[in-house]
Amino acid sequence: MGERVQVAERASGQLVEATLHEGLTTRDLEVIERSWAAHRAELVAALMGAGVERRLWPESLHWDWGRKAPLLELLLVNAFGVACRGGWQAVMMTKTAGYDARVSSEAGKPLVYVDFVETAPWNWTISELGRLPVFKGLGSVLIRRAVQQSRAEGFRGRVGLHALPQAERFYGQVCGMTRVGPDAAKQDLVYFEFTRQQADAFISGGGDR
């Protein structure tokens, strides 16, 4: 069960059918991590072998979805994933309480906070290794789902997140979120936010499809 979505297969240039699942379980996240861990390890070896500087490595390379799985015990935590061709291609964890908007026009009003979002390691662009993603558009599918969740919660599309530096361009320029600025409380990661109007524009514009 899940929502049918489309993602772009880079090699063929074709859109392919995928399924967006909500309510991922602890077991789902453990399965995802088992599937992705071998690819992460292979990438570390390849990066080290090629002498790529650490600062250029994919910034989520050390993540472990299995360790994030216990958070799903909490009502405020939800996980979503995109699957196609028999595998999990991307996953996102959101929180629906305890986070308020910071952009002044909507400050103090609740939003959906995207705690973690990641595509599978084979969907990363790693120019230093000449690697290109198998599927593209997964981030947009998941951010669009976060906006839908925000609307369903009565948060009117407001979404907030802290971006890893390699993802800042995606959230600011591709999604059109407001760049609020570095957050000292979150390792100086840049905080981005969708206002209601920006979320509407993102969705009506096809969510970057």
């Binding site: 909490l74 009502l75 405020l76 629906t96 309480a97 305890g98 009003k109 609740p110 919660e153 009565g154 948060f155 009117r156």
Partner: peptide
């Protein structure tokens, strides 16, 4: 800017946390 039901849902989530 929430419904009363949404406020109570928020309260329950935070209380559980």
């Amino acid at each position: 800017d929430l419904s009363k039901t949404a406020v109570l849902r928020q309260a329950l989530r935070l209380y559980q946390l």
